[in-house]
């Protein structure tokens, strides 16, 4: 499950009103989330949760479910 907080953060950066985000959704499926914008999404998530990801943690992510898990593990 993707939390509303994470979803809102992502949609905000990408300037989307609404977009169905599932655990299996991949970044490149979401409109506007291209390789360049990726940096902005990650920075926004870090800011929202007041965390700092390791580079490798971000590179390992396969889908948004992984990002949720990473956020959960850090925010604890």
């Amino acid at each position: 499950m993707i939390s509303d907080r994470l979803k809102k953060t992502i949609l905000n950066v990408l300037k989307l009103d609404d977009y169905e985000i599932q655990s299996e959704t991949r970044a490149d499926e979401v409109p506007g989330w291209d390789s360049l914008n990726h940096i902005n999404v990650i920075l926004a998530v870090e800011k929202e949760y007041q965390v700092r990801f390791k580079n490798i943690e971000v590179l390992k992510l396969k889908n948004i479910g992984d990002l949720q898990k990473l956020v959960d593990s850090k925010a604890k």
Partner: peptide, 17 residues
Amino acid sequence: LFRPLQMKFRNLRMLGN
């Protein structure tokens, strides 16, 4: 190459890209 570098420079935002 690009993705690891991009993450490394992410604090520079656009300039990092």
